[in-house]
Design a protein around this nucleic acid. Structure first.
Lengths: 226, 226
DNA sequence: TTATGTGAAGTGCTTCACAGCA
DNA sequence: TGCTGTGAAGCACTTCACATAA
């Protein structure tokens, strides 16, 4: 190991390509599955097949994080998983709030995957007075006794609860306004489910999930090769 | 207009970059919004601002589809929207089936956006006998009287119903098997909500939606700039 | 011998800058 | 004059091919 690669591992100053970052969670999940069936060492080809990519890509991606493998052998599953968890910032748990307790919001709460991957939903907000006060701890994926809050004091609540990430599952008409309030609540990462481009300060991280866009992309390809 | 650009428009043989394709639905949605407030002509900068990109990108993207604008003026909103609908293959309606009527599947059915964008959910399947037979036409987004079907004869049902696209909202453990059955049902486009890489024949189109991956990407960036 | 780590080559997308038209 | 359409330049990611190390 050169002092140069030591640099990479310890300081993390190296720029990791955005597309590599979005594959890291996939690798991490594959390693969990490998662990679960007792695999202790894995090579780039095996990992690639689980993740749906190719061996060269896996090696390149992982090399951005340091020299994590052993030549002639492969990667230690437990060690690599730990490393990825750390890099992804899910070593400790992350505090997440959900805004919008409609049909979509409700289904998000029911998804165990968030909890299993290090995310705790610590608050749920909704405008609708009928929904406010509803108990939402039905799955063990959220803390006992969590109830839906009014959005009235959302800025203060988000600050008090030290929320880092917000899942925004509100109608598109109100998404921009709610996003701005969320930012005033000290949150700088938003997972947006509304089909609108949010305009927010530079420093705020936004990722959007839009299923109907994906459907339309499928439709496009169907139109010419189906 | 040159005979060369005429080629593009009529034959559609030009290869459109994948990333451009995934922005087309966004442009289409923005044009709908523009129409709704009475805008008849729009230029690349305005469209870019609505879509969350830049003017050069918009012009480049649209130029792959032909010469759709008027120099010195901009783009005709209605004409461009129609063109995008056609290119995206949502000129006529698309027949979609949902597999998995759990929490996520249920919330997908409640989303009007699919219907509004040209997709009709013509069938819902689930393994759970308790759910089979449930009436799901609660929103007008699906045909009157639609009930949950058993997956027992899903291959035959998909063929009979002429389903083109499947939304796969089942637990990850059964996703691969269900995907294979879906393909045997003549479907060649799948929107996959399970966090696994589906291994399917070359000709099958797959897009995956994985919210926990997006959360982890946000977490990564929070860890180093937050 | 085997499998990683990595410069270099290849590919594809974005941005620039301006020619081309209305 | 104003805005589109587009080669060309720039940038980023992927793939290759092999030196490197166990």
């Amino acid at each position: 190991m050169t002092s140069d690669s030591e640099q990479k591992r310890t300081c993390g100053c190296e720029r990791v390509p955005e597309q590599t970052v979005s594959r890291l969670p996939v690798y991490r999940r594959c390693l969990m599955q490998a662990s679960a069936i007792g695999v202790q060492v894995i090579n780039s080809l095996q990992l690639a097949q689980m993740a749906g990519t190719n061996a060269a890509q896996v090696r390149k991606d992982l090399s951005y994080l340091g020299e994590l493998g052993t030549r002639g052998i492969g990667y230690d599953v437990a060690a690599l998983r730990g490393h990825l968890s750390e890099v992804l910032g899910v070593g400790e748990r992350r505090r997440v709030a959900l805004i919008g307790f409609g049909r979509l919001g409700g289904s998000l709460l029911g998804y165990r995957g968030f909890f299993e991957r290090g995310f705790d939903i610590v608050a749920v907000f909704d405008v609708d007075p009928v929904r406010v006060g509803t108990l939402v701890d039905w799955h063990g994926a959220v803390p006992k006794g969590l109830t839906v809050r009014s959005i009235e004091h959302i800025e203060r609540d988000l600050l008090d609860l030290d929320v880092e990430i917000v899942m925004l599952a509100v109608p598109m008409e109100v998404a921009q306004v709610m996003a701005e309030r969320v930012v005033r609540g000290g949150v700088s990462a938003i997972l947006n489910f509304a089909p609108v481009a949010l305009e927010l300060p530079e420093h705020v991280l936004v990722r959007s999930v839009d299923m109907s866009t994906d459907l339309q992309v499928l439709s496009y390809h169907l139109s010419r090769q189906g």
